[in-house]
Amino acid sequence: MSTIRCDIVGAESEIFHGQAKLVIATGEAGELGIAPRHAPLITRLKPGQVRVQLENGEELCFYVSGGILEVQPQVVTVLADTAIRAKDLDEAAARRAKENAERLLANRADAVEIAQAQAELMQAIAQLRAIEQLRKQTRH
């Protein structure tokens, strides 16, 4: 019985790797069953299950919230998204990052920050002066 190597990886951890008889996943255009020596194929995955039939007939089931499926003759790679992705959500994230930057630029001359820096400077000067005095005293 021939098998195909199957790697399922998430961005933040490895999920599964081993030999499989059949890998079933939900592609963008419908359910896919990948048997050994499948033609090279690449597709996006829809959120859903990825089922892996092992050599001993056991079936493992993983949930992915999207990702990429790549098929090479000897290996199936599933690059699973850990995050829930959608165009709108991505756009919202981009907008948030932009707003962050704008907020930063808006309070460029933050009065509180300047005051804090000044206070720190005063402290440093005072410390230096104390050390200076100490040196003078001990030398005599």
């Binding site: 961005a11 933040e12 850990t82 995050a83 992705r85 991505d90 756009e91 919202a92 994230a93 981009a94 907008r95 948030r96 990052a97 932009k98």
Partner: peptide, 12 residues
């Protein structure tokens, strides 16, 4: 760090 936190800045 989670990849979600980086999606926004990368997309820009």
């Amino acid at each position: 760090p989670k990849i979600e936190q980086l999606i926004g800045v990368i997309k820009i």
